[in-house]
Simulated scan of single mutants.
Amino acid sequence: MSMLGLFLGLVTACFWAISPILLKVGMRGVRREDVNPMRSFGFLLGMTLIALLTRSGGFVPNGALAAVMVVLNVVLGNYLGDQLYFGAIKELGVSRAVSVGSSYPLMVTLVSVLWLKERPGVLHLMATGLIVLGLVLLKMEPHREGERVYPIGGYIKALGAAACWGVSIPMTRWLVTAGGLSPVGANWWRSLTLVVVAWGLWFRGPGSRPERRRALARIPLKTWLILNVAGAIGLALGGYTFAVALTMSPASLITPITASSPIITALVAVAFMGERLARHQWIGVGMVVLGSAIIGAL
């Protein structure tokens, strides 16, 4: 296990904490099925710049299986998983959607053990559970009188997103360890694949109607810019540092650390946006920090 890998996991968490804030701003007035296609350009441009700056090799997949894995990785993680997540946010709100979606490290650990034959220790598993429970507490809202009943479909979508992310993350580790791709190469191909998949499905679906194409063309340039900056930060920079971390440490250890990104968002909101956390949410903060510290010390 590499301490540099764990540090890059924390860096990834920071990138993944900034991206949702930008997405929240950029999604105002934008249909959720339009978000992935719009932000995909930021992902591709960001990865192209990283490739040029790092001059990295490792762009040739190690056989047809690796090429297929890139496509499955994008479809599961960046398209289907994120689409389900956007739907969960619409139905449950950010707090509830994130609390359920934050269970994805458990899925990563399960898939990593069964497929990649990783063997996390008991303390690693306990720390993973501690981080997930802390995230759930962090995102739970205080009880209010007359609180609305949220649809079960929203919870199913959030769990579906967690499952998609949990399967796609071990795929990323396989690509950068056994698939013949470098972290830059793997993420550049993922970025190109997302552009093709997201826009291809959009034109076959919503974009097949002229009024939807006209509506997309009327979206302000500022909104396009915000969503693509979110794509560059969350998908390109975050995806790159995450892939590098996976070459140094097992996915079952890196993922719980990256899953702490909501805590960074919450702390920024408390420090700079005047938001408050309830007592149980501060307990959640402590559990996430403790779980991350345990993993970093092992």
Rank of each mutant, 00 (worst) to 15 (best):
K157L: 15
I254L: 06
I219E: 05
P262T: 06
L159H: 09
A215G: 08
G231K: 04
S191Y: 05
L175Y: 05
V195D: 01
Y240M: 14
R148N: 03
A259K: 04
I264T: 00
V184I: 11
V197A: 12
P262K: 02
I152A: 12
A245G: 11
A198V: 07
P206D: 02
R204S: 12
A259N: 11
E141V: 00
P183C: 05
V197N: 05
V176E: 07
P256V: 06
S260R: 04
L221S: 13
Y150C: 01
I131P: 09
T265S: 14
I152G: 06
R213D: 13
W174V: 08
A236R: 07
L175K: 00
L194H: 03
A243W: 06
L227A: 09
A266I: 05
L246R: 11
I264S: 01
P206L: 09
A251M: 05
P170T: 11
L216W: 05
I131N: 05
V195C: 06
I131C: 04
T258V: 14
T241I: 06
R144D: 08
L138N: 00
T128Q: 00
I263L: 15
G180S: 10
T223M: 03
L237W: 08
S261W: 00
N228K: 03
R213M: 13
P142A: 05
F242E: 00
M126E: 09
W224Q: 06
W165V: 08
G185Y: 10
V184W: 00
G134D: 14
L235I: 12
